[in-house]
């Protein structure tokens, strides 16, 4: 098991390297030189930057030097000094901007995954054990609609309903008085009050998918001989379903938790834009729009790394719950 984890962690490294290269390429994509546009922006705001300041920036990013030198400067800055570059738009180091947003993104995604499992697993099990019954049919239709309705449209619809029916705005994660306030207990409480709508919307998409996966996997397992063995023992039907086939049917769940985390973070981006949540999505969008490339690139790098780590964690969990894999690894 330990060797398995070590091997998986080592395998992760090349992936992270390629991800960083791609993020760097994206930072470089917009036409024009970063420094020129930075200076242009500063002068547009009435500031000027002295030659010395420019020199310092040039040194920091290795500008004007070959592209691979720039890449190494950027990467080593991140790894050695935690320097993610400078956000042009915010006039702040990127590192001051990203972490809170990233933490909220992770919080929201993890809660959403838990909520979606909490709903999807019992519903999926019920649907599979009552195949072709009326509730199964209704649940299937609902989950089909859930799969088909993209999260950001749902968010839009929920906003509209809240606006027109309750005359309430549901956007954001905080009330306005806490928006810029430092973290405090009151702010956390305030966030929890706002959290449930985004969480439900984010969870819905994956919930619907998970219901269908659980149902399909369980239907495959229900006819396996080991279920009959358990039944022939005289075990109670409900107990045996949860102990044996559900247990096996949920394995693919753990193996895809990494991917579902990826698609959650990905899908959440658009939902967050619609609901103007204080997560990575809206800030990344804004950064992209204003070509604030160090900020945008950092987000891409961080979100991708998050997915890689998520996949790793899910692989480890899978190895832990499924003895067949544990021993092979």
């Amino acid at each position: 098991m330990f060797g398995y984890i070590i091997r998986r962690v080592l395998l992760m490294i090349p992936t992270l390297i390629v991800i960083s290269i791609i993020s760097f390429v994206i930072i470089q994509l917009p036409p024009g030189d970063y420094l020129t546009s930075y200076a242009a922006q500063l002068s547009a705001q009435g500031d000027t930057i002295d030659a010395q300041g420019l020199k310092a920036l040039e040194e920091r990013y290795g500008l004007g030097q070959p592209i691979h030198v720039q890449y190494f400067k950027w990467v080593s800055g991140i790894i050695l000094r935690g320097d993610w570059g400078q956000s042009m738009e915010w006039q702040k180091p990127v590192k001051d901007l990203i972490w809170e947003r990233l933490a909220l993104t992770i919080l929201l995604s993890s809660v959403a995954i838990l909520v979606s499992w909490f709903i999807a697993i019992p519903v999926g099990v019920y649907s599979a054990t009552h195949q072709y019954s009326i509730p199964d049919y209704v649940l299937s239709v609902i989950s089909f609609v859930g799969v088909g309705t993209p999260g950001f449209l749902l968010a839009l619809i929920v906003m509209y309903l809240a606006m027109s029916q309750l005359n309430q705005s549901v956007g954001g994660l905080f009330s306005s008085e806490f928006l810029l306030a430092p973290w405090s207990l009151a702010k956390v409480v305030d966030m929890l009050k706002h959290l449930w709508i985004p969480v439900l919307i984010i969870a819905l998409e994956s919930t619907a998918g998970s219901i269908r996966t659980t149902r399909a996997n369980l239907l495959d397992e229900l006819n396996k001989p080991y279920v009959e063995t358990a039944r022939a023992k005289g075990l109670e039907e409900g107990k045996l379903i949860w102990k044996y086939p559900v247990r096996v049917a949920l394995n693919p769940f753990f193996s895809t938790v990494g991917w579902s985390l990826a698609s959650l973070i990905s899908g959440q981006t658009l939902i967050a834009v619609v609901l103007s949540l204080q997560t990575t999505g809206p800030m990344m969008l804004r950064a992209l729009m204003s070509q604030d490339m160090y900020l945008a690139g950092s987000f891409l790098l961080l979100l991708s790394s998050l997915t890689v780590i998520g996949t790793l964690v899910s692989d480890i969990i899978l190895a832990w719950v499924d003895p067949r894999i544990r021993l092979r690894g």
């Binding site: 396996k224 001989p225 080991y226 009959e228 063995t229 358990a230 039944r231 022939a232 023992k233 005289g234 075990l235 102990k243 044996y244 247990r247 096996v248 394995n251 719950v321 499924d322 003895p323 067949r324």
Partner: peptide, 21 residues
């Protein structure tokens, strides 16, 4: 009665035991 008075030895020993227990 099942498993107590009447017990079953199934056909497929390979798949008749749960793989995860």
């Amino acid at each position: 009665i099942r498993g107590c008075r009447i017990a079953l030895v199934p056909q497929e020993p390979m798949t008749s035991l749960s793989p995860v227990h």
